[in-house]
Design a binder for these strands. Sequence first.
DNA 1: CTTGACCTTGACACCGATGTGAATGCTTAA
DNA 2: TTAAGCATTCACATCGGTGTCAAGGTCAAG
Lengths: 114, 114
Amino acid sequence: MLIGELSRRTGVSARLLRYYEEQGLLGTRRDANGYRTYSNDAVVTVRQIRALLAAGLSTDVIRTVLPCANGDQPKLDMCPQLVRTLTDELAAMDGRIDTLRQARGTLAAYLPES
Amino acid sequence: MLIGELSRRTGVSARLLRYYEEQGLLGTRRDANGYRTYSNDAVVTVRQIRALLAAGLSTDVIRTVLPCANGDQPKLDMCPQLVRTLTDELAAMDGRIDTLRQARGTLAAYLPES
DNA sequence: CTTGACCTTGACACCGATGTGAATGCTTAA
DNA sequence: TTAAGCATTCACATCGGTGTCAAGGTCAAG
């Protein structure tokens, strides 16, 4: 599929899809004419990117993590640096989850319905 | 205490403390000489600000929420707008927590120790 | 062959949010 | 008196976009 269709299917502007590619988050193949061509998987990938960004991960981390999440190469090239990144990010996630849950509890106490 | 001491005690730069004041997150009294003066509570408040920011809350929301979290006025001036803000934020928090937990699960599967 | 929709790159500029740097000057303590 | 510490102010940086323009290539339908 071309970029316009992917945009329509994901609700993400073509502009932003090109931006994600530029940031190394979204791989593309090119047709002979130079057009970006996407597989159906791209729809899922774009949704993942959006979800992870919404969750507060940086594009840097997402770039590192996405190839694994997509199962492209499971555990294979687990160089120490990647393991470090993932471990650090997991710890940060746990921290954020804790903080959010705590803040949530504090706030909920001030509302009639939790 | 003066801003330098608060900075040392919280690990937050004086510059950033002034910024938080400018954003309405951190109240200050002034000495006759114009110097900012902080109570011991300010240390706690700054930590709260940092934690909530780290958890992904905006300064806008924190500004609304902090007076309650500090118990300054519990439930008193619960105007509908404030309830709306808090309710919305709780929902958003739940969403972020879900996304993070899911991402965490996906990532953890790729690491030997979870 | 033309038209119109769709694609390409590259650039420039702007936004809001969260900070950070640095210049310049006043106040206080040693 | 001198240095540390405080003050204000303007400006810049980064991140994650977003809009828009220019100048052009591609393709299917009529």
